[in-house]
Design a protein around this nucleic acid. Structure first.
Length: 561
DNA sequence: GCCGTTTTCGGCCCGACTGTTTTCAGTCG
């Protein structure tokens, strides 16, 4: 499912996992993981380009990838799949359970799925097993619970890619996605697609390569489950009720209930076929007509959550939401100097193609030891960036860094070093389970550092993998507003951090935001649109977002004017 | 399995935390 690069990367990742579980050499495991990451982040389509050009891919991996592209698998992967059941690999998705313990549990007790593990713990069968004490059991149960909740939804990026792929491959007069995807929610339970189209569209839909199972199928609606387990509904609607159907299926349910209440009071009826007075159609062709007939502004989908948008639209007071086109630059990106996979030149060139007025490179700082950053490397990068600047007269290159917020709130370098950077993002990367009050003062201390401009991915959550850290967010927002520290909206779709409800809360405290891609590869730059979705859901306008500002205003905010 | 203006062999991201050890293995970022 998806781009050839993503499919091949997923296969290599699976191979790396299985290879590790079957006792394979750790360095080779890392080679497969590295190649997978590089292929996923490679800007060219590897089904057309030579995969040997991807850094980290040599002859052996290239052969595997080529075989994979031809027939959807490769021999060594097939062999390992025979040895390790799929469910055992699923075990490693449980937090705190890695390949060694997973295979140990399988060999010792025949445990071959998270469910089987939960059962075994319940029956006390792990008691006395080497390396499995009471605390471990408790953590495993917690991890299984978390996994269960996560697996029911996917993050916006996965759903959006799939929806766009489906839409592009179905011929229709009109076709679009609705539902929570159109509202840009950070997680998606199922995908709703509407189409005005030829009678053959249902058959074509069922025949798509990533359809694993047809759940139900009729003339107007077909539901399928994809190979990744996501449900997709396709509805065929009459052209004349396109707007009503889009409105109805975009939701949210609560927003629609609010509208229908208004209709009832006027003796009208609103359904997926139109707005009616008795048998007479008042509006149905476009959403705009429908909202207008109801005496209100058209409501942008991200606002349709019954969070005051109906009342505001009736008064004609909806905010002018920030858009992707408003963004003048990206203030949090990486290169291969730390954990990115593209060079500085490649990232800058890609940024220029986005038409940015400014662009910041913010590689990690020394305290994230595994990145092996040094001041010398940072200064060399700065010099390199200055040389590059001449080639990009229309885009101001900013040299930044992503600092590490230590448990006490301090960051990597002393003030005199930090002052040399154009922009400093500071983020939490460890000690996630600090008690609430310590975590809160950790953030506040970081905000109070005059050289910290932006708090990166503040909650540090990873959707489906890691819960948000616990902090008194109102206290943090107050500090951010007081110290003129922006909070990041990290657009990377498995982070989506801050989430929109906290953004909205922070805005009430007067906080400004930076919508950043946190790119580690060229294609990631395009993720900014997901950040804009979060911002819109939080009612942000251009004025709330520092990287929607012109360069001069941004530099003044950074104290670098 | 990849990679090389210190290497075509011998390195490879490395340190911290957790829970379980009685000196460390496994997991994570």
């Amino acid at each position: 499912m998806g781009r050839a690069n993503d499919d091949a990367a997923a296969a290599l990742e699976e191979y790396a996992d299985l290879f590790a579980m079957t006792g394979g050499d750790a360095f080779r495991v890392r080679s497969y993981q590295k190649a997978a990451k590089a292929i996923a982040g490679y800007p060219e389509d590897i089904s057309r380009a030579d995969v040997r050009k991807v850094p980290g891919v040599g002859e052996a991996i290239a052969k595997k990838v080529e075989e994979f592209l031809q027939r959807g698998g490769f021999r060594q992967l097939d062999d390992l799949r025979m040895q390790v059941p799929e469910g055992v690999r699923m075990l490693t998705r449980i937090a705190s359970l890695g390949p060694k313990k997973a295979v140990f549990l399988y060999r010792e007790l025949g445990i071959d799925s998270p469910e089987a593990l939960a059962e075994a713990i319940g029956e006390g069968r792990l008691a006395g097993l080497r390396g499995f004490g009471a605390k471990t059991e408790e953590n495993l149960l917690k991890g299984i619970e978390q996994l269960k909740q996560a697996s029911e939804r996917v993050h916006l990026g996965v759903a959006m890619n799939l929806a766009e792929l489906i839409i592009a491959s179905l011929p229709a007069e009109k076709i679009a996605y609705a539902g929570s995807l159109r509202r840009m929610k950070d997680t998606i339970g199922d995908i709703d697609i509407l189409a005005v189209g030829p009678a053959t569209i249902m058959e074509e839909f069922k025949g798509l390569p990533y359809v694993a199972e047809v759940i139900a199928s009729g003339g107007l609606k077909t539901s399928v489950r994809t190979t990744r387990g996501l449900q997709v509904d396709l509805r065929v609607v009459p052209a004349e009720s396109w707007g009503a159907a889009m409105q109805y299926f975009t939701g949210s349910k609560e927003h629609n209930v609010r509208l229908r209440e208004m209709c009832v009071k006027r003796g009208w009826k609103l359904s997926e076929y139109g707005l009616f007075e008795g048998e007479t159609v008042i509006a149905s062709k476009t959403e705009e007509e429908i909202y207008e007939a109801l005496g209100m502004q058209w409501v942008p989908p991200p606002l349709r959550e019954d969070g005051g948008e109906v009342q505001a639209a009736l008064r004609g007071e909806l905010p002018e939401l920030v858009t992707l086109a408003d963004l003048q630059g990206d203030l949090h990106t990486h290169t291969n100097l730390t954990d990115g996979i593209a060079t500085l030149e490649e990232m800058v060139e890609a940024a220029a193609r986005h038409g940015y007025a400014y662009y910041a490179v913010t590689d990690h700082a020394p305290n994230l030891f595994m990145q092996r950053m040094t001041l010398e490397k940072a200064l060399e990068q700065r010099a390199q960036l200055h040389r590059l600047q001449d080639e990009y007269p229309d885009m101001r290159l900013l040299h930044g860094t992503e600092l590490n917020i230590a448990p006490d709130g301090s960051v990597d370098w002393p003030a005199e070093i930090l002052e040399g950077f154009d922009v400093c993002v500071a983020s939490v990367h460890s000690h996630f389970s600090q008690p609430r009050d310590e975590m809160t003062s950790r953030f506040i201390t970081a905000c109070e550092n005059p050289n910290v401009h932006i708090i990166g991915h503040p909650t540090t959550r990873k959707i489906g993998k890691r819960p948000p850290v616990d902090a008194d967010w109102e206290a943090v927002f107050e500090a951010a507003a007081r110290t003129n520290t922006a909070l990041e909206i990290d657009a990377y779709p498995d982070r989506a951090d801050l989430p929109s409800d906290l953004v909205r809360l922070a805005r009430h405290h007067g906080v400004k935001f930076s919508i950043d891609s946190d790119s580690h590869a060229v294609p990631h730059l395009g993720n900014l649109r997901f950040g804009v979705g979060i911002a819109q859901r939080a009612w942000l306008t251009r004025d709330d977002v520092i990287n929607a500002w012109p360069l001069e205003r941004l530099l003044a905010f950074l104290g670098r004017g």
